[in-house]
């Protein structure tokens, strides 16, 4: 719960810092840390982490033999952050490209370099230190005078990131499937933050009699749908669809392997308080910030495919499982399950 709270704090701190907090997010127009494009690039690796961890623990925890069982499952994961998720190509004010308007310089690789760089590598939320771009306007009047030195937010210097923890109810039904439910609502600054997941893992090998009398092997299709939202300003939707197979080696050990396609989309929007905009210009090199345009970002993930394999050890009271996942952020996961009701009998090979 502490990790979940930290996650929510982190996301909402970055998204809503300097805001006045109301039902519709209103941000002071002096919020100049991010343009929309830069905020989107800064956060995309974090939403990749969120998406991958949302789409974990969706299969491999039971032999779907059609016996009813309800389980509470808690799992958590750790993700390796690749180097290319630690930086993004940050937006540069348009005037920086015109040397008759302003001259620019910055320190890259320990050397002072003139001009702007393409890509303009700046840290994402997982990255390190940012690189300010110094600018000397060539004239005192508009537009040159706007194009002054800029700096960027910095990252958390993380190589490993903890995934969003999963707490879910799994119900196995006589239809040889299992249904997953996750739900959480917490107040975030006078508004409810809501999260829910519905998932289905359906065995289908028996429809085609693929494994004959072998009751220990399963071939399954799994699907999950996730949503998070806070008011009308923050909305995240994610899903995954995949194929997985399990093999129960004996009463205690179950191996699993699966591949899934997943995606995430959503938006964050906040409007700027434009009171006094005409009297008191925000002197900022970015046109979006000068004109107090709304902060509007699309939520995206780098990860589209995930391959996962692991082992589940089953005990009388529940199970523990461990798996490895190959994706843009390689992930290890660990889970614990507690049975509400034990199945009537166990597998006999």
């Amino acid at each position: 719960m502490l990790i979940f709270n930290k996650y929510i704090n982190l996301i909402f701190f970055v998204l809503f810092s300097f805001s006045l907090w109301s039902k519709d997010i209103v941000i002071t127009r002096n919020f100049v840390l991010f343009t929309s494009k830069n905020l989107e690039g800064y956060l995309q690796p974090l939403f990749t982490t969120v998406n991958q961890s949302l789409n974990s623990s969706l299969f491999g925890l039971s032999n779907l033999d059609g016996k009813f069982r309800a389980t509470i499952n808690f799992s958590f994961s750790s993700l390796l952050i690749p180097d290319d998720h630690k930086w993004f190509d940050a937006e540069i004010p348009e005037g920086f490209y015109d040397t008759s308007v302003t001259l620019t310089a910055q320190i890259r690789d320990g050397k002072i370099q003139n001009g702007v760089f393409n890509p303009n590598k700046q840290p994402t939320i997982f990255g390190g230190s940012s690189t300010p771009i110094f600018a000397a306007p060539q004239n005192h009047f508009y537009p040159d005078s706007f194009y002054k030195t800029i700096a960027y937010p910095e990252g958390l210097h993380l190589d490993l990131m903890v995934g969003l923890p999963v707490l879910q109810l799994i119900v196995e039904t006589p239809l040889k499937n299992e249904v997953r439910f996750r739900f959480l609502t917490i107040p975030v600054q006078e508004e409810s933050f809501v999260f829910f997941t519905i998932g289905l893992n359906q065995r289908f090998d028996h429809w085609f009699d693929l494994f004959g009398f072998d009751r220990c092997k399963n071939l399954n299709l799994h699907f999950a749908f996730h949503r998070m939202y806070r008011g009308t300003s923050f909305d995240l939707t994610s899903f995954s669809l995949g194929l997985n197979t399990t093999n129960q080696f004996n009463n205690n050990i179950l191996g699993y392997f699966g591949i899934q396609y997943e995606d995430l989309w959503g938006h964050f929007k906040a409007i700027k308080d434009t009171t006094g905009l005409n009297q008191d210009v925000v002197n900022n090199p970015f046109r979006e910030l000068r004109e107090a345009r709304p902060v509007q970002i699309s939520l995206k993930t780098f990860t589209k495919w995930q391959i996962r394999g692991g082992l589940t050890f089953i005990f009388s009271f529940g199970f523990i499982n461990f798996d490895l996942s190959y994706a843009t952020q390689p992930m290890i996961s660990f889970g614990l399950g507690l049975f509400f009701e034990k199945k009537n009998d166990e597998i006999n090979n």
Binding site: I3, F13, E154
Partner: peptide, 13 residues
């Protein structure tokens, strides 16, 4: 993670 997420750093000119 928890240690890292205690802080947010940014540069301002």
């Amino acid at each position: 993670f928890i240690g890292s997420v205690q802080n947010f750093r940014f540069q301002i000119p």
